[in-house]
Each structure stands twice: as C-alpha cells, then as structure tokens.
Amino acid sequence: MAGHISWEHESDAALVRRVLAGDVEAYAGLVARYRDRLGRYAVHLLGNTADAEDALQETFVRAYRGLAGCATPERFGAWVFRILVNRCRTMGAQRSRRERVVMSNESMLGEADVAHPADRQAWAEAIRWALDRVSPEQREAFLLKHVEDLSYQEMVEVTGVRESALKMRVKRACETLRALLAEVERA
C-alpha cells in the first residue's frame, strides 16, 4: 500500500517518467488515477459496461505501449483521453454492425422503461434511452462538453475535430435530448 500512497502524491509527469525508466508498477498509479473518469465516459458513450471496460483496458494498454510518444507527460490525462475517444469511436462502429439486428427490439424496451421518470432509476434509464438515440458523433461531443466539462479548445485537442463542428454537434445533441426527455417528463 505504500506504493499506492506515493502514487497519490506524484504528478502525472513523475509517474510517466518512472514508467519510461522501467518501473512498470508505477503505471498502476496512472491507471488508478484515470480509470473512473475515463470509464464513465466510455460507459455513457458505448452504452454498456462490458464494452466500456474492454475499451478502457485497450486504451490503457495502448497508452502504455505508446507512452514514449506522450510529448507532454504532465498532460497525460488529456493524452490518454484522446486514445479512449478514438477507441470508443472504433468500438462504437463495430458495435453498431453487431447489434443492428436487435435494434428494433431494444427501442421497444427503451420505451417501456421510461414510463416513470420521477423515479431516479427510471430517469437514469430515460437518459440512457435518449442518449442512445443521439448520433455517436453528437453523443461524443455532448459528453465531453457537458459531462466531462472540457473547453472547446480541449475538445478540439481530444477529438481532432474543428471547433465549429463540435459546437454544432453539441447543439444538435442538446436539441435531441431536450425533445426526447421533455416528452418523457410530460408522460
């Protein structure tokens, strides 16, 4: 546990340097530091925990593999977030192929689940249902902006997408969510 305590007091840059110097175990400090925030993004973007954990595991392994290429170790968080965003894009594309067949049934289930939005669980499910109906690009932009609280400049860095396009995606995501959830609340 002593190692764990020391990780908490070490900066990202210090941990990255330790890993690059051969201290593989120091990487656990970076994983522990970012797993929850990255995991939250992946779960909401991909819509299920299993895919999210898969994406997260691959992200951390890829980040480790390319750690020497992390040009600014003090910004490891932003760098690994970018890897996750790309990983989720790829996995999202794969998932949409795999699950196309069952989408219609899922839609019906979603509607059945949102009957009582006053209930906290039902509200969470309603959000999940609505989020699933936002395009992946718009969902990505919405989560980064409103849930992860990234600035547009940071979003450009993480996604590689132009700011104007990101603003448009966030706007459209909000419009869709408002339309869907307002309807749920009225129900």
């Binding site: 890829r62 980040a63 593999r65 390319g66 750690l67 020497a68 290429g69 992390c70 040009a71 970018r82 890897i83 790309n86 990983r87 894009r89 790829t90 590689g160």
Partner: peptide
C-alpha cells in the same frame, strides 16, 4: 487512423 492513437504526433 486508430494506429495513431498512441503516436507522438497524432
């Protein structure tokens, strides 16, 4: 494009 995820220049 995902190959560049972990690349320095990205």
């Amino acid at each position: 494009g995902g190959m560049l995820d972990a690349s320095p220049t990205g």
